[in-house]
Amino acid sequence: MKDTLLEIKNVKAEVDGKEILKGLNLTIKRGEIHAIMGPNGSGKSTLCNVIMGNPHYKVTNGEILFEGEDIVKLKVNERAKKGIFLSFQSPEEIPGITVDNFIRTSLSAVTNKNMPMLQFAKSMKEKMDMLDMKPEYRTRYLNVGFSGGEKKKSEILQMAMLNPKLVMLDEIDSGLDIDALRVVAETVRKLKTDDMSILIITHYNRILDYLEPDVISVLANGRIVKEGDKNLAKELEKTGYESILDEVMS
């Protein structure tokens, strides 16, 4: 029996005074791939931001237990140090800071130690090769002038180097063409260890062909309304969210 990595209990959260999560419960086991699907505006990205601790989102109720500890009051960087990683839907551009510099700084912040230069370079090369990224990206300013797909690859490169326990992929499939999506998804799969859990936020099924989920949850109107295995995605594709919502509401 795998242990629980993340347990969200009856979480309510608001942004700008508007309640988005309305008593959400969710459990993610260690090593599990868990997909969250749901219609636009249901609160999927809010869920990621609330787990990461974005100060713009206010948790008004409930607990978020990470390895048994309530992290609601922890700062964003403290959560990162515990092993929580969010791949952003729209990663920020940081002019003046190279990809190398940013990842080195992050790595030493998360691990509290400096990786020797040679080991860092070797590790970066290995991961960039997997992602089909050219070496010159190391010296480019972080995400500046990157295409949508390059930004997503840069997120996965950071994930690969930081080696977190919980990876949240917030619409990693948006802005990626089919080939890039395959490369990104396969890289995530290769990098996934038995201890790493992945939370995938997506509208589409295609990424689930490469990263086969153990559990799929449907998020609607701020709550998880249905849980199932990978077949749930196929069912949703056929019937759309409407039928599930009807079923749940009735």
Binding site: M52, N54, P55, H56, K75, V76, N77, R79, A80, K81, F85, L86, F88, P91, E92, I94, P95, G96, I97, F102, T105, S106, A109, V110, Q158, L162
Partner: peptide, 21 residues
């Protein structure tokens, strides 16, 4: 927020932005 999500404290993030400039 983005920089802090990679483990940097608020002061480390500010320092990085100053370095960038």
């Amino acid at each position: 927020y983005y920089m802090m999500s990679r483990g940097l404290s608020i002061d480390e993030a500010k320092l990085l932005m100053v370095e960038a400039s």
